[in-house]
Design a protein around this nucleic acid. Structure first.
Lengths: 215, 215, 215, 215
DNA sequence: GATGAATGAGACTTCATTCAT
DNA sequence: AATGAATGAAGTCTCATTCAT
């Protein structure tokens, strides 16, 4: 496994490429992202953002009509660019390879995604809070996630089933069961429970999924 | 399995027994709980609460010094009364029974807790939001959870291991792996993904955990 | 002619009767009215209003959702209550009397309305500014005015025509020509041109209209 | 009578001749004029102006130190150039002719000015709003108007009186009574009341003033 | 205890104006 | 001369909290 994929790296790239954002506008986005992650959206004031971005408060509103819009500007590239792109790269590099065993598959997938999740917990928090009380955004996320799963994960699992490497469990349940293990790790990290090295966690998760999903 | 255990039922009972709350104060707590679940703490105004509780705004402040205190009044019985009591009852009724197979154990545990979780998703949301950006509360929760796990779950798993019904996985990881499956179900429900009957989910989860955790 | 009818008197009465406005809310309406008249709506801040009303700024928003709404709260009773009521009283006392000559009619109408207009110039200003760039309000005003004219003015003029005391000019033009004379007086007052006593103006206006409208 | 005299035509000419305005600056003035007329001064932002003028926001400030100055730049040629010039031309062409009857005089004056007013209602709006809450400007306007009246209108009326074609009414009242009829027409147009063709209005106005002002 | 009008601190937002390019 | 991003003062508005009744 190479170094973990930082969402924020993708994020900054997405910013650089995409829109003609001025330097200050980028500072604003980054300041917002970090503050939302630290304190939550509602507990972050535009004054906080302006200060951390080293910018006048009015500048925040030059491009972003309001605070809500600023959140959208952070979430939207996740959904529209970052997540799909990561899914694609992840698919090519980690999933749609010719695996000979379920364990190989799981080793590739779980290792990569676990490190990804761990490296981006604070960003995931922002996304989560945003989804929590916003139906519109939740639906958007659902769309993107469903699409990514359908294109990357499902084909790989289907192939494994054809090779009789995975039990006859519906694809959506296989996905749910795998995702569950990531959520469990996030939960542990989040609550800051008794420490357990990520690589150890990965080993146990792979072991368990390997046995559990086998035919 | 009887009807799912509603946190809110415990909650109301806890209110009734415990403190000498007036009728109005109960209304306030219930209104707060439902509003926080629907809109989130930050998006709920004290005016909202007063209105739904059918009470004057000032009345809210008669017993609860401030909005934060009101949240605490909702969360605290969860942590101090509801969760421990549920753990105990759950332990007595569902876990610390003489299971002959891992599957029997999982059937008991997963079935019960899955229905519990599904029946209380909105309440879990409030707790989650409260924990999200509040270290103090998070630590409190950690304490309670660790204690409950230590008293109920760990002994049961240890016994299963002694019976060679569970693989040699550290207890904390067993717990994590089981909890993960609940989180996966919550995640599915929360995002309102392709519907899959809870009982079906339970079956697949039990199957997978059974195989996965077996020695 | 008795003392001139003050819109603001009607206004205060309307406030007292109508809604259950608290004392402070009345102060807010009165402060707003006077400030809007003095400085215009756009040049009046909510801080100005709060200060003159001797009230906290938040109090302004307790009943009036926003500044625009506050303007509406001032204008609306004019249109819905004050103007119609004045029209009715005016009609009964000044218009729908058995006039034997056009001059009698004009004397009654012009005298009364001229004093009314002069006594309420500042209030008329607010109404005017409000109508100026607000189509919705303008339509509402049109409705009310049209109705009042139809019920009070038109019957009176029709009767005068039947008595052959007024030339064969369409009713709408008769009204326009009479109203014009008030507007001319307002214009003079407003520009603060060479002073000319109101009663003198009234005399010349009556003379001119009498000759001009005669058959 | 030829096509109605458009203030905006005078306005553009005044701009062209007078100052060495660049093309962009003319665009700014025109954009401001149209926006002020549509939405009012206070409701028009410099961003609005820049956009409609197809110019950068900073450009607006190259020649006009501030927004107020921009309004002044629009009003001032009215007062200093447009109105006097119109008065002069109007005087030469329409008033200071050897009229044989009051009706001839009124026909000339009312017809011309009514069409002028109707053709420029939106521009008149801007002037009016500007005068409404600006004492300084109001005084300036008073000066100009008084002068124009004194030089053009008064001599004509005085001559008519000498010919015994006008009743013995003070000149200021004659002017007021004539102006009133224009204001009445503006009022009707502004409120968008029941439509009545301008030429018909003119006929009734002339008839009434003819009879009303006759000795 | 309960009420709900009143408060005011502080958040969000606007926009005329400046200034480096 | 022109640009347009940036500014920040000032305005609008929200809402947790207080308090007289």
């Amino acid at each position: 496994m190479s170094e973990p994929t930082q969402i924020s790296t993708y994020f900054k790239e997405a910013m650089t490429e995409n829109r003609n954002l001025t330097e200050k506008q980028k500072q604003i986005l980054e300041a917002s992202l970090s503050l939302f992650a630290e304190k939550g959206f509602a507990n972050t004031t535009t004054a906080n953002i302006a200060q951390r971005a080293d910018v006048a408060e009015g500048t925040v509103y030059k491009r972003y009509a309001n605070k809500q819009e600023l959140l959208r500007a952070i979430i939207q590239p996740f959904l529209a660019v970052v997540l799909p792109r990561m899914a694609t790269e992840f698919g090519a590099e980690r999933v749609n390879l010719p695996f000979n065993t379920l364990r190989d598959f799981l080793t590739s997938v779980v290792t990569d995604r676990m490190h990804f999740v761990m490296a981006n917990i604070s960003v995931i928090k922002v996304l989560f809070e945003a989804l929590m009380y916003n139906v519109e955004l939740r639906n958007k996320f659902k769309d993107v996630a469903t699409k990514a799963i359908g294109q990357i994960f499902t084909p790989a699992v289907t192939r494994l089933k054809e090779q009789h490497l995975v039990a006859d469990i519906p694809n959506d349940m296989v996905f749910q069961l795998v995702i569950s293990t990531f959520l469990g790790a996030v939960y542990r990290e989040f609550l800051d429970l008794s420490p357990r090295d990520v690589n150890e966690q990965i080993t146990f998760i792979i072991d368990t999924l390997d046995k559990g999903l086998r035919p």
